[in-house]
């Protein structure tokens, strides 16, 4: 089932990039999509981690929330950069990731890194080491609002 969906996604990607819609080109594209899907199957990467298509529905609500968070914290970091006194207070901290699956933890760690002002430096089991540009950023993460969001996003998988 995941194989068919992977091949369909790859073929759609080909169609979007090529821009030539003659029968020959489409046949070549379909062949390539099937070949790549077969290669991925032989590498045993077509599973819930390699092709997490089941998260697509909930991503519709998670990504806009993440985009707003990114915009807010990017504005905060920009204000710090352009402030003549450069009021930084770099902080290291650890937070616990409460997600059940590896995909959920990876999404959480990547969301932290994607938000300007906080970086996931190391992952050790379910403990994430965070470097934050200002102390408030570290305190926000310790409060765990994003952790809960990602847990909802991961759902009952």
């Amino acid at each position: 089932m995941r194989m068919i969906s992977l091949a369909a996604f790859l073929f759609a990607f080909w169609l979007a990039l090529s821009g030539h819609y003659t029968p020959g080109m489409i046949a070549v594209g379909a062949g390539c999509a099937i070949l790549v899907a077969l290669a991925a199957w032989r590498m045993r990467v077509v599973d819930a981690e390699g092709h997490p298509v089941h998260l697509l529905g909930r991503a519709v609500t998670y990504f806009p929330w993440l985009a707003i968070e990114i915009a807010k914290s990017a504005w905060a970091v920009t204000r710090v950069i352009l402030n003549p006194r450069l009021p930084i207070s770099p902080t290291m901290t650890t937070v616990k990731a409460s997600q059940r699956s590896a995909v959920g933890r990876a999404v959480y760690a990547n969301s932290i890194t994607l938000t300007p002002g906080t970086i996931t430096v190391a992952v050790d089991g379910d403990l994430l080491t965070i470097h934050a540009l200002v102390r408030d950023g570290a305190l926000d993460l310790e409060a765990g609002a994003m952790d809960r969001r990602v847990r909802d996003f991961e759902g009952g998988a």
Partner: peptide
């Protein structure tokens, strides 16, 4: 504006980890 601000941060910040925060402003917003 945000691209230039991130690049200014890349030059102004005092150490590697703080520079990464500035670079991620360019890469996202």
């Amino acid at each position: 504006f945000f691209t230039i601000a991130g690049a200014i941060g890349l030059v102004r910040m005092p150490d590697l980890f703080t520079r990464m925060h500035a670079a991620s402003v360019i890469d996202t917003l």
